[in-house]
Design a binder for these strands. Structure first.
Length: 265
DNA sequence: ATGGTCGACTCTCGA
């Protein structure tokens, strides 16, 4: 049986409407089959669905005004895809605009999340961030056992010192504090592997570059906080994983950069 | 060094 190539990507687009030109340009070049977006920042009525259709993608989205919002875009070659929003565990909040689940029954399942950033370690949002990670772990235990699965998205955690510039200055940052990294590692200990690190064990490569820092991209001053975390079943199909910096060099780049993975299913 | 710049939208917040 011939193995079918599957390319997925996760991208914090930071406004899907504002970033539509670079998204169209990137998708036309990148051969992505399944795209997971975060921070679409648009209500569903105003989502640019037609632009995705004309690029050959079926798109599923759940957003709100100004903040948050997640979406899944699938090429027509992806058959039988079902997409739902929220953790679906009966608890509140549901995080409908931070959580999307995309499943092709019998083939694969992906959890796409925009993890709360947390603001400050003393802020209540940081506690919410920890609770969110606990619910991600509960989701894994509930839904990620056998079939090929990955947790993807803007997870707002840099797992290791290697994943940030100047870690000694970031010990109290909500995306790098020991507490949140420990919690993150505990979620992964369920049985997920950091796909980028599997293919690039020592790479100093980032997915987020702060707009406020001068020449962050060319100086390579950033954070690796966007991830593709695969279970054993999906790992066995993985052939590549890389950060695609090219869209960051285009007009109106996002502060995040796409993370891409290739599989042979 | 504790700044800086974006995006959406009222003006200031979130990142």
């Amino acid at each position: 049986m011939v193995k079918k190539p599957l390319r997925i990507a996760t991208f914090n687009v930071n406004s899907v409407r504002g970033r539509l030109p670079i998204l169209e340009r990137w998708l036309s070049d990148s051969k992505v089959d399944l795209l997971f977006l975060q921070e679409t920042k648009v209500v569903d009525a105003d989502f640019p669905e037609a632009a995705f259709s004309s690029m050959g993608y079926q798109v599923y989205f759940c957003g709100e005004k100004s903040y948050n919002g997640v979406a899944v875009a699938a090429r027509e070659s992806v058959k039988g895809l079902q997409v739902r929003f929220g953790f679906g565990d009966g608890r509140k909040p549901d995080f409908l605009t931070r959580v999307a689940v995309a499943e092709a029954p019998g083939a694969f399942k992906f959890l796409n999340t925009y993890v709360p950033q947390g603001k400050e370690i003393t802020h209540e949002d940081y506690q919410m961030k920890k609770k969110f990670l606990e619910r991600a772990r509960a989701f894994l235990e509930r839904e990620a056992a056998d079939a090929p699965f990955a947790w993807v998205g803007d997870l707002n955690v840099a797992p290791r010192e290697l994943d940030v510039t100047r870690p000694e200055n970031k010990k109290d940052h909500v995306c790098f504090h020991a507490d949140i990294r420990e919690k993150f590692a505990w979620v992964l200990s369920w049985g997920l592997t950091d796909l980028f690190r599997r293919f690039h064990p020592d790479a100093v490569d980032y997915t987020f570059f702060d707009y406020r820092l001068k020449d962050a991209l060319s100086r390579n001053v950033g954070w690796r906080i966007d991830h593709i975390l695969a279970n054993e079943s999906l790992m066995s199909h993985a052939v590549a994983c890389f950060i695609d910096r090219e869209p960051r060099g285009w007009e109106k780049p996002s502060d995040h950069t796409p993370l891409v993975a290739d599989f042979r299913m």
